[in-house]
Design a protein around this nucleic acid. Structure first.
Lengths: 224, 224
DNA sequence: TTAATATTTATCCACTCGTATCAATTTAGA
DNA sequence: TCTAAATTGATACGAGTGGATAAATATTAA
């Protein structure tokens, strides 16, 4: 049991749970719908996960695992990169993950405006440690001249992550209102390029003499 | 009936609905809880609003009314302002509104990832017209040098609004994880200052000769 | 005061929810 | 093959849901 390899009822339930919780949140999701989507009897949820709450936690932990994997997948190469390149690399990976799994942000968001044991668990186990590290990285990058430094690191951090993922959270709206699919690869790359241009300081602002602005486009977008 | 002045059952229900729908979304909110919060019998909802759905629509329309009012409250003075000052003014008002009524963004967000008649109504009546105008304004401001112009207006728009409001949507998280209340007036002003610094081009980038960077802080933050 | 209307309250109903229970079935080990 | 465990399936239950109905009360007009 629990080898991590099974692609059966248990993992089918997890996948379906990610989708449903991502769309409707904990309160708006019914375990019967999850079971239907997974193609299994709803009694099986009680067996594989002791409750709806447990299934929700499993879905969250699964997604945070994917996030961590995605953002750090090039970590081995960071030692060969400048601070600037590291930031660009992790930001790019974060944006790609946000496009691939908007569910995580949504699930967190659903829980965010009211007290609950779920929120407590979420904060202690994921949000606080994750955000603390992220803000520290932002502050460091500010010192290194990668970000502007006349703005508090916390504000900058929340602007950064919002800039990165908001467009994907709005995706159905945008599709509906303007018939643009922001999950198209082209759109994703365009958004990466836009966010990096908007959030990261031009390379030659302070120290170096002006180099050349013409190919900033490619230099900023094709790192990974 | 319906004079717009009554501060009674009907408006008490509306206020309570805004709060509840903002916290839990349509699916997660029960009309009984709304009635309890308003201090009235839940049967009254059927009387004043014909259904939960109607009450939700009324709450949305009410909030969009407040938004419009907030963003355009200085519109009379726009003719005396430079394009840059207009953008700063409306952005500032938008951020203040986002701090005062994070419910609107949340309510929209709850509906955003799945099809429904509510989403259709929302898109047609509010999102599409509102966003179209906003993106057009962004594009114009790009031409006028207020925003950077090497980024598509749509991406810039979604980064802008995300940067403006995300921190307030994360408020309970931030309070919980770092004990910071982003709704404090100081925090709000700090955030306005940060967002304007991050999204709006420095005044002297292109045309003018470099003037002075020292008081950019006050010049950008105290407009309204 | 009286009659008509507007509003509130108290129940009721059909339905969905999460979950508990237990039988049926499949799988694995001897 | 036989047995025990693991897994799945069918059903039931109490709680909570939105909405409907009609009685009770408050308000207004005559």
């Amino acid at each position: 049991m629990e080898t991590g390899l099974e692609l059966d009822t248990r993992s089918k339930l997890l996948k379906a749970a990610v989708v449903q919780f991502g769309k409707f949140g904990f309160a708006g999701t019914s375990v019967r719908k999850i079971a239907d989507d997974a193609g299994v009897n709803h009694g099986s949820i009680k067996y594989h996960y002791s409750s709806k709450d447990d299934l929700w936690r499993a879905a969250v932990a699964y997604l945070y695992g994917l996030l961590d994997e995605a953002v750090h997948k090039d970590e081995a190469e960071w030692k060969n990169m400048s601070p600037r390149e590291q930031i660009i690399n992790s930001a790019t990976n974060y944006i790609r993950f946000s496009a691939k799994h908007p569910e995580l942000s949504r699930i967190v968001f659903f829980e965010t405006m009211h007290e609950s044991e779920r929120l407590e668990w979420l904060t202690e186990n994921f949000i606080r440690p994750y955000t603390s590290r992220a803000i520290a990285r932002v502050a460091l990058a500010q010192e290194q001249g990668v970000y502007v430094d006349d703005v508090p690191a916390m504000n900058l951090h929340y602007v950064n992550i919002a800039a990165a993922k908001n467009i994907f959270l709005m995706a159905p709206e945008i599709k509906r209102a303007f018939d643009i699919d922001v999950f198209d690869d082209d759109q994703i790359e365009q958004h990466i390029d836009a966010v990096l241009k908007l959030t990261i300081r031009p390379e030659n602002t302070e120290e170096k003499p002006s180099q050349d602005g013409a190919d900033a486009d490619t230099s900023i977008s094709n790192v990974t």
